[in-house]
């Protein structure tokens, strides 16, 4: 919101100031390029260039008669086979990541709310508690979930006692994958929501109560809209890594019915000559995510994302 306002005000301001002081803006912009150059070069060489290379690989063609060999070409067949052979994998990735994002939002909001408005002097301690678990390696924690959710574990025990599990298992089911994804990216949801709630004035929320709105109405019409930039950033920071993840599926999920991340990883690292199709899969994943991000930001958006 404020970012958009700034963006539209800045050019006007530039015109106004440029009249009085000709020399300053040019000198200043040269300094800006010098400051920007090393980082931009790094991103150019190790982000943009690799993506260009990946794009050319995704268009290579198969050498007839030589399995695993490819030559440079502009061939969209890899994209066709990526979508037809691995459509279900894409669908699973987006559904599981979407569910995990929603669950993470439900779990994260009360915590972020309590940190912003109720914690008082405990605020810093709670902040440390949110980040601290993530200093234990994320693979170790995911592995710990495979112990917690194991058939002999207490979670499966309780749920089976209540007859809530149709198959009798959690581990090696999509449910365990969604649970792992929800857990692993939770701080990325908590911290942006907390940051935007912290900036909000609690008196505005109290005013909702004073005007006889019940708790839910106050939340829906006052609190939630005020935290929207944080919710937006949080959902993106959760959904994007979750959609590309393969570790949770590998450690917690079933043997069959993998996500697109598993396919890309296996094609690149385990299957010789799998590069072109895997590159096409990577690009399709990235394009799908960028389009979704764009539409999502357009729909709910603010300029300042993070």
């Amino acid at each position: 919101m404020s970012g958009l306002a700034q963006a539209s005000v800045a050019p006007a301001a530039a015109e106004v100031t440029a009249g009085g002081d000709d020399q300053r803006p040019t000198r200043r912009s040269w300094t800006a390029y010098l400051l920007l150059l090393p980082g931009a070069l790094w991103l150019g060489v190790f982000f943009v260039l690799p993506l260009v290379q990946l794009a050319t690989v995704s268009l290579q063609s198969r050498f007839p008669g030589f399995p695993g060999y490819y030559y440079r070409d502009v061939n969209f067949q890899n994209y066709v086979s990526a979508l037809t052979d691995y459509g279900p994998h894409f669908l699973r990735s987006f559904v599981y990541a979407g569910l995990a994002t929603f669950l993470a939002f439900v779990v994260a909001y009360p915590l972020a709310y309590a940190m912003a408005f109720k914690a008082g002097k405990w605020r810093n301690l709670m902040m440390i508690c949110v980040v601290a678990p993530f200093f234990t390696s994320f693979i170790l924690r995911t592995f710990a979930w495979s112990q917690i959710l194991a058939d002999e574990g207490w979670v499966a025990g309780i749920l089976n006692f209540l007859h809530l599990l149709p198959s009798g298992h959690i581990i090696n089911t999509p449910l365990a994958v969604v649970a792992g994804l929800t857990y692993n990216f939770l701080p990325f949801m908590v911290l942006p929501i907390y940051a935007s709630l912290e900036r909000a004035d609690p008196r505005v929320i109290e005013a909702g109560g004073d005007l006889y709105a019940d708790g839910f109405t106050t939340f829906r019409t006052v609190t939630l809209p005020m935290s929207m930039p944080g919710v937006l950033a949080g959902t993106l920071l959760t959904f994007i890594p979750a959609a590309g993840d393969f570790v949770n599926m590998e450690l917690l999920g079933p043997q069959r019915g993998k996500m697109v991340g598993n396919v890309i990883n296996d094609q690149f690292l385990a299957i010789p000559g799998g590069y072109p199709v895997a590159a096409a899969l990577s690009f399709t994943l990235m394009a799908a995510i960028l389009v979704m991000v764009f539409l999502y930001v357009r729909r709910f958006g603010t300029e300042e994302l993070v």
């Binding site: 931009a40 982000f47 690799p50 990946l54 993106l236 890594p241 590069y275 994943l285």
Partner: peptide
């Protein structure tokens, strides 16, 4: 420049890893 800084954060790690491996 803003886009150049933002897009790496919106790119799944697996895509960045794959791209880096190919180059």
């Amino acid at each position: 420049s803003n886009v150049l800084i933002f897009v790496p954060m919106a790119t799944p790690e697996i895509v960045m890893g794959a791209a880096l491996l190919t180059i």
